[in-house]
């Protein structure tokens, strides 16, 4: 049982690490946000579930469920808010960007 939990936790930690590497390698803030949000959500969920499995499911699971619920609600909201603010603030997309419909529409309004 403990070994299974440890392996789940290891997978989660691997995703967290990958997310940080993505944060370093991606070329602009939106791509970084994509890498960061997705991997940190799933990575932390796996990390927590692995610990709950390994160290006694009954005692840990209630609070860990709340934590997972919080992470699932708040993480996408915060990254959406940040992306919206960054676009409004005028942070440029990277050079290889194909198109930007939002900017076109905003300029069309003016």
């Amino acid at each position: 049982m403990m070994l299974a939990g440890a392996l789940i936790t290891f997978l989660g930690a691997a995703f967290l690490l990958l997310g940080s590497i993505g944060l370093l390698r991606m070329p602009d803030v939106y791509n970084r946000m994509q890498a960061g949000t997705k991997t940190s959500t799933l990575g932390s969920i796996l990390f927590l579930i692995g610990i709950a499995v390994g160290f006694g499911f009954k005692v840990f699971i209630a609070k860990i469920l709340i934590l997972i619920l919080f992470i699932l609600i708040t993480n996408p909201i915060s990254s959406h808010t940040l992306a919206r603010a960054a676009h409004f603030f005028g942070i440029e997309l990277t050079e290889s960007t194909v198109r930007d419909n939002l900017k076109e529409d905003e300029e069309g309004d003016r």
Binding site: G22, N31, K38, T39, L42, T97, N101, L102
Partner: peptide, 26 residues
């Protein structure tokens, strides 16, 4: 979908050429 998206990010991050083709769509 969440699990798929994580493997997608992992593939893109670990690929030496960083295969991205980004844009904002409606």
């Amino acid at each position: 979908e969440l699990i798929k998206s994580n493997f997608d990010v992992a593939f893109r991050v670990l690929h030496p050429k960083l295969p991205i083709n980004p844009g904002i769509v409606k």
